[in-house]
């Protein structure tokens, strides 16, 4: 299970980095989204992964902490997801504005001279 997830994270990172280095704004925004998935999953995995152990306590409180997965990375990732959405939106607007202003969707605001 860990291996599968690790490979998945790796592929997402690789694809994200590749897109990050491309010249078109749209590629970069897709790349950033992929990277944020990868990073979120990575942080999520820091606490170790467990099945059938959500950090939802039974009625009346705790029995045994070992029966639950680590809630701290989850709390971190939850806010990261929401903030990631906000920054994606911001970037989208910036790229649209840049396209409107410069007439191109190149990340530098002008086509590269060859």
């Amino acid at each position: 299970m860990e291996l599968v997830l690790a490979i998945g994270i790796g592929v997402m990172t690789g694809s994200g980095v590749w897109l990050l280095l491309r010249p078109r704004t749209y590629q970069v925004i897709v790349g950033l989204s992929l990277l944020s998935y990868a990073v979120n999953l990575f942080i999520f995995g820091v606490g170790g992964i467990k099945r059938h152990a959500p950090p939802i306590l039974p009625e009346g409180g705790i029995a045994d902490p070992a029966r639950f997965t680590d809630p701290v990375p989850q709390a971190l990732v939850l806010t990261a997801i929401v903030i990631g959405f906000a920054t994606t939106a911001l970037f989208l607007v910036v790229l649209l504005a840049s396209r409107g202003l410069t007439g191109t969707d190149h990340v530098d605001g002008r086509e590269q001279s060859k």
């Binding site: 997830l5 690790a6 790796g10 990575f42 995995g45 606490g47 950090p55 705790i62 680590d70």
Partner: peptide
């Protein structure tokens, strides 16, 4: 390179024995 590095790192992190972290405090 980044992808492979990230894979190895995540694998190592996930298989590491989890120390007695603050998780227990929050759970309790």
């Amino acid at each position: 390179a980044c992808g492979i590095g990230m894979s190895l790192l995540s694998y190592a992190v996930m298989t590491l024995p989890v120390p007695d972290a603050i998780a227990n405090y929050f759970l309790e």
